[in-house]
Write a protein that binds this DNA or RNA. Structure first.
Lengths: 133, 133
DNA sequence: CCCATCCTAAGACAAGTGTCTCAGAACGTC
DNA sequence: GACGTTCTGAGACACTTGTCTTAGGATGGG
C-alpha cells in the first residue's frame, strides 16, 4: 500500500519556504532568514523542524565544513498541489471547479489575471483533452 | 486582540458536515449518518468530537428529551472561506488570483463550469469597480 | 422493584506539533 | 593546550488530535 504523504505542519512549511527561496541553507542561515521574516525562533527550534522534515523525506542534508546544509527534495509546486487537492476533497466534493467558482465570486481578479484566465479558458476550449507533447 | 479562529481538525470537520446536512443531530444520529458514510467510529468518539466543537463555539446544543441535540453555529461557507484564506495566505502569497490560475492550469474545467467562469469574468469586467450602480 | 438500555461525564492514552534546554564534539585562536 | 564559539544529538514538556473505556444517571418494560 502506498503510505500516504506526510503532513506538513505550518511551522515546517515556513522552514521549507526558506529552502525554496534560497535553494539550500544551514540551520543558522535558515534561522536568520526566518528572523528577518518575523519568525522569532531559537536555533534549536529551526534545527528540530529541519530534522523532522528530513525524517519525512522532504529535505536532505549533507555536511559542508562544520555544519549540515539542507536542501528541499519536494517542490513548492508539489506541496501546493497536495494542499489544494486536500482542500478540494474535504470541502468542495472533490470538484476543483467549485473552488474556482467560489474564488472568483468572493475575490475579484485584477484585470491582468482576468485576462490570463480568459486565455486559459480559450485554450481549454480549443484543445483536445491533453495528450502529452 | 481578536483571538484567532479555532482550528478545525478533519475529524471534527466530518462531524460538522453531518450537522450541516441534517440541520441538527444527536450523538446517535450523527453516529448513524457517519457510519452510513463509511466512518466507523464508536459512540464515544462522536460524542467527544461534538463536545470539542462545542468548546470551540462551533456548535451549540440543548437537551431534547433524553439526549442533547447539536446544531452548527458556523456555516459551511464560513469554514470554506477560512480554509481558502489560510491556503492562499500560506502558499499563494495572499493572492487568490494565483490559486485560480493554478487550479485552471492543473484541472481542466468541464464546459458548464467554464461557461460559468466566463460569465463571472464578464460581469466583473462590466462592473466598474466600486460605486453601486 | 429490577434490569436492560441509552445517555452524559470524565478521562485515558498514543501520536503529532510547537518550542526549548542541555550536554558534548569540533574548530579557531592565542 | 585551555577557551569561547558553533554545531549536533538527545530529549523534555505542554498542547492538540484521534480514538476509546469506564462509571454512573435517567428511563421504560415487565
Amino acid at each position: 500500500m502506498a503510505k500516504r504523504p506526510p503532513t506538513i505542519p505550518d511551522s515546517e512549511l515556513d522552514v521549507l519556504k526558506v529552502l525554496w527561496e534560497r535553494g539550500q541553507a544551514t540551520v543558522r542561515e535558515a534561522l536568520e532568514t526566518l528572523k528577518a521574516a518575523g519568525r522569532e525562533w531559537s536555533y534549536a527550534t529551526v534545527a528540530t523542524l529541519l530534522d523532522r522534515l528530513e525524517t519525512k523525506g522532504l529535505v536532505e542534508s549533507d555536511r559542508k565544513e562544520l555544519a549540515f546544509v539542507y536542501r528541499p527534495t519536494i517542490s513548492s509546486q508539489e506541496v501546493r498541489r497536495r494542499r489544494v487537492t486536500s482542500l478540494v476533497d474535504k470541502l468542495y466534493e472533490g470538484e476543483p471547479g467549485l473552488l474556482v467558482l467560489h474564488l472568483l465570486k468572493s475575490h475579484p481578479l485584477d484585470p491582468g489575471q482576468a485576462m490570463e484566465v480568459r486565455e486559459i479558458l480559450d485554450q481549454m476550449a480549443g484543445a483536445k483533452p491533453k495528450k502529452k507533447g
